[in-house]
C-alpha cells in the first residue's frame, strides 16, 4: 500500500503541473463569474442556475480530466518506457494500478473541493442559502467520476491507444446514464432473447443515473438514507470489480 501511495502522489503532483487541470479550474471560475450577467435575465431563477453550475462543473471538469489524463495514465508509462523504472523496482502491478487510480481520485477530490469552496463563497456573496445537501451531491459526483475512472483504467489495460480508451469511456458515460431507459426497454422488448440480452447489458453497464441528484438537491427533494447506502455500496462494488479485472489483464500484459 505504501508503494501505491507514492505512485498516487506522483500522479497527483504530475496532474497539478499539468496545464489541463489549472485551465479547467480557471474555465470553471470564469463560467461561474460570467453567470453574473444572467442575473436579471433568469426571471428569479438565477440562484438555481448558480447552484446547478456549482454542482455540474466538477463533473464536467472531472470528465475532461478522465478523457485527457485518465486515458493516458497507463499508456504514457508504456509509450515513454517509464514503466521499466517501476518494473525494475519491487512494485507489484496491482500496486501500480491502484496508485494510478488513487492519484487521479485525489485530483477529483481537490477539484471538487475547490469548486465547493468557490461555489459556497459565491452563493454566500449573492445571499443564496447554502444547503448541506449540496455536499452530498458533490460526493455523489466524486463517486461517479471514480466509477468512470475505474472503467477507463479497465479499458486502458488492454486498449491499443488512449483515443480508443477515451471513446470507450465517453460511450460508457452516456450509456451509464441511459441505464434506466435500457432497463425499461428490457421490460418492453417482445423477443425473449432480446429481453435477456438487454437485461445483461443493463447489469454490466454502470448505472450512473443513480449519481445524478442535482435536480433533487436544487429543488429540496429529500434523498433517503437507503438510497445513499445503496449508491455508495454500488460504487464500491463496481470500482473493486473493475479494478480487479484491470489488474488481472495488466498482470498478463507484456512490455
Amino acid at each position: 500500500m505504501r508503494r501505491s501511495y507514492y505512485i498516487a502522489k506522483a500522479v497527483f503532483l504530475e496532474s497539478l503541473k499539468n496545464y489541463t487541470l489549472v485551465s479547467m479550474i480557471v474555465f470553471g471560475v470564469v463560467v461561474l463569474v460570467a453567470s453574473l450577467f444572467l442575473n436579471n435575465a433568469m426571471l428569479g431563477e438565477y440562484g438555481k442556475l448558480v447552484v446547478d453550475l456549482e454542482l455540474t462543473l466538477p463533473i464536467l471538469i472531472g470528465l475532461i480530466i478522465i478523457i485527457f489524463n485518465g486515458t493516458r495514465l497507463v499508456y504514457d508509462e508504456i509509450e515513454k518506457k517509464t514503466i521499466y523504472i517501476y518494473a525494475s523496482k519491487p512494485i507489484k502491478r496491482w500496486e501500480f494500478m491502484l496508485g494510478k487510480f488513487l492519484g487521479l481520485t485525489a485530483v477529483f477530490l481537490v477539484v471538487t473541493t475547490i469548486f465547493a469552496i468557490l461555489g459556497f463563497l459565491f452563493l454566500m456573496l449573492l445571499h443564496i442559502p447554502v444547503k448541506g445537501q449540496y455536499v452530498l451531491s458533490l460526493f455523489f459526483s466524486i463517486m461517479e467520476l471514480m466509477i468512470l475512472l475505474s472503467v477507463t483504467m479497465f479499458f486502458s489495460s488492454f486498449s491499443a491507444t488512449p483515443i480508443l480508451t477515451g471513446v470507450f469511456a465517453f460511450v460508457i458515460y452516456f450509456a451509464g446514464h441511459l441505464a434506466p431507459d435500457i432497463y425499461q426497454y428490457s421490460l418492453m422488448a417482445k423477443n425473449q432473447f432480446v429481453r435477456v440480452l438487454v437485461r445483461i447489458i443493463y447489469y454490466i453497464l454502470p448505472n450512473l443515473s443513480y449519481y445524478n441528484i442535482t435536480k433533487e438537491v436544487t429543488h429540496n427533494i429529500s434523498i433517503s438514507i437507503n438510497q445513499i447506502y445503496y449508491v455508495i455500496s454500488y460504487a464500491l462494488l463496481y470500482i473493486v470489480l473493475m479494478m480487479v479485472f484491470s489488474i488481472l489483464i495488466f498482470e498478463k500484459k507484456e512490455f
Binding site: L38, A41, M42, L43, E45, K48, L49, D52, L53, L55, T56, I59, L60, S141, E144, Y173, F174, H177, L178, A179, P180, D181, L208, S209, Y211, N212, T214, K215, T218
Partner: peptide, 23 residues
Amino acid sequence: TNPHWLGDFNIIYADFIWFESLQ
C-alpha cells in the same frame, strides 16, 4: 427530450432552455 441523453448536464440544459424561452 429525454434527460438521460444528457448525462449529468440535463439540469444545466434545462436552465439554458429556460433562459432562451424567456428571450
